[in-house]
Design a protein around this nucleic acid. Structure first.
Lengths: 345, 345
DNA sequence: TAAAATTACTTAAGCGTTTAAGTTGGAGAG
DNA sequence: CTCTCCAACTTAAACGCTTAAGTAATTTTA
């Protein structure tokens, strides 16, 4: 007697339906290239229901060398720490990736970036079907990944020399648009507030766009107006307080993330400046936080859902050899945090 | 000639090190119950390095019926939608679960709640080593899960009749503490603002705690002061505007989530009420948002990291038969959003 | 009417591990 | 000098699935 509760497998189904395991496999996978009698299909399906069969993906993964698993790597604030989730942009992105992946029959494995263990190792171990890397990471990350056949999609990274697919927006142009918007409103003293500026990151691109706009308008870049810290409300707030105290205060600030802008607004208000009357702020991303600042934040909207969706699509449908780069559009959302500058003589 | 790039497996290592696959397996898993000569261990380890061997977890999972994978289920706002990530509490919790799991050599599979496919099925399919269910879910979720041997940990759920481990705080008591704090500050007209109140959810418990405090203080519960919507800043804001217009306005509001409190503050300010001078607000969770409202939000702090950590520990170390319930402590954090009520005669 | 094609299957090898059970040679015991 | 014991291995089955190749019966084609 078989007292131990065994896992129901294809063999059990085969026996119950009076067919071979191969047939069961064909029925379960609905294989179009196999011809199977309607009656047989029904017998198998009935057996599956009757016995409560659930396929074992580990076995499937073993023979197919495929896991129906997509890895998502999210940047950490610090090594050995948790990953960055105070920025709603990442939350929203992850949520959309998970949603789309699930629709496609895939699951999502999340991971912060571990210094000891390269993500490539995880990918190989788990036979991941693809890796979506969000944001910028230490260089050694990418190095290893090039040696593998696993599709890698980079979101918000400008490592153009690497054979990876990317999905991005025109960060430089977008930043230029934001800055030009401020310039068109009469601002000349425009500050730049961002997280750490890394070589291949979006932040650097956005910095370039900011510079482009200023230079094109004949405004020289004031090094005193360039602020770079962490992508967090804390930094924004700190910065708001600092800027408020400044002698030659800027009249507008372009922030590369809503969450920094949010902090900025808090800090500036704390220092009794009115926004946008005393100082204007423009953000980036259009996360929910932009819709719930006071004043409502004028910002560059990027379609976060689409960003996640396209990333999954690139992994699943993309030709692995091709080096695709998808570029999404942005939109400037005018709300309440930017004012026309009254000329002061 | 073997032109196709094959995956390096134990057999290759065995050949290279001149031992059997079994020995390789023993060395790689550092099995204490096997005696292996130092020299042999070194030979195997060298071969692993030389050939760049990475174990195949699918194969391991197949024989061990174990995946080193923990599933985390996060509530969705609506069926067929993405999961709830506007609430920083969930983000922070997920981040800590992932961090702790990774430390322990496990990975995290995330999933929103899919109506069609019960999570039990995913769990079986993937041989998950455990499931952490965050927040409250439709009843049929739990039903299926009882039939399996997979360890399930419920975070923020009061389904006490089910054979699951839980990890929670004393929600009722905590809400009572928050409400009593307001009462001690002289408030009598205290509103309650929450998400949907479900039978087994934390929200109901917090509602009870709110009621307890009022009743104990001899204040009758005013149905007009009970607001229940969604756990979002939008709802909070809407509510803030609504409450501001009210004839018999409450003097304080207890919100069951910081994010609602955040919205409330925005809405109330929009309606030209000063906080805490005109109306006090107390939150719950102490997510980062509490530290970045203006005014800073007085709130009930729960240790989100510990909540995640304990959940992982329960999955990995907990005796599967025992029905453990871990209860964590909370702390009231006094900030700026609650004022002493000046008696008005 | 025999050959070819098609339908509806089955057989069995293989994916990369783990592990219970066996083997071998040498050290220590009697 | 044989016997036992132990260290240091090896052998081979099993985990649950996929799939190329085979088979047998039936139908179509020339």
């Amino acid at each position: 007697m078989d007292m131990v509760k065994r896992r129901i497998n294809m063999k059990d189904i085969a026996k119950e339906a009076n067919v071979s395991v191969a047939t069961v496999s064909y029925v379960i996978n609905k294989r179009k290239d196999q011809t199977i009698a309607e009656a047989t299909i029904k017998r198998v399906e009935d057996a599956v229901k009757k016995l409560g069969y659930v396929p074992n993906l580990a076995a499937k993964a073993l023979v197919e060398n495929k896991s129906y698993l997509i890895g998502v790597v999210i940047p950490q604030t610090e090594p050995g720490k948790q990953f960055m989730f105070n920025n709603p942009f990442y939350s929203e992105l992850l949520s959309s990736i998970e949603f789309v992946a699930r629709e496609r029959g895939y699951h999502v494995l999340i991971s912060g970036t571990d210094v000891d263990q390269s993500y490539l190792e995880i990918a190989k171990k788990r036979s991941l079907d693809g890796i979506i890397i969000v944001g910028i990471h230490p260089d050694n990350y990418y190095e290893n990944l090039t040696s593998t056949a696993i599709p890698v999609v980079l979101i918000d990274s400008y490592c153009n020399n690497l054979p990876f697919k990317t999905i991005s927006i025109r960060d430089r142009e977008s930043a230029k648009i934001a800055t030009q918007y401020l310039i068109n409103k009469g601002h000349k003293k425009i500050a730049f507030a961002s997280g750490v500026i890394t070589d291949n990151g979006v932040t650097y691109e956005r910095y370039l766009g900011y510079k482009d706009a200023l230079e094109e308008a004949g405004i020289s870049v004031n090094k005193d107006y360039i602020y770079s810290g962490t992508v967090s409300q804390e930094y924004g707030k700190e910065l708001g307080l600092e800027i408020a105290k400044k002698d030659d205060r800027p009249t507008a600030i372009f922030s590369t993330a809503d969450i920094i802008a949010f902090g900025l607004i808090n800090g500036l208000k704390k220092a009794n400046l009115r926004i946008p009357d005393d100082i204007s702020v423009i953000g980036f991303d259009d996360t929910w936080i932009a819709r719930d600042c006071d004043p409502l934040l004028t910002t560059i909207k990027q379609d976060v859902f689409k960003k996640g969706e396209k990333a999954v699509d690139l992994i699943l449908n993309g030709n692995n050899d091709e080096n695709e780069n998808i570029v999404l559009d942005i939109e400037l959302i005018e709300r309440e945090s930017v004012a026309e500058l009254k000329e002061v003589f």
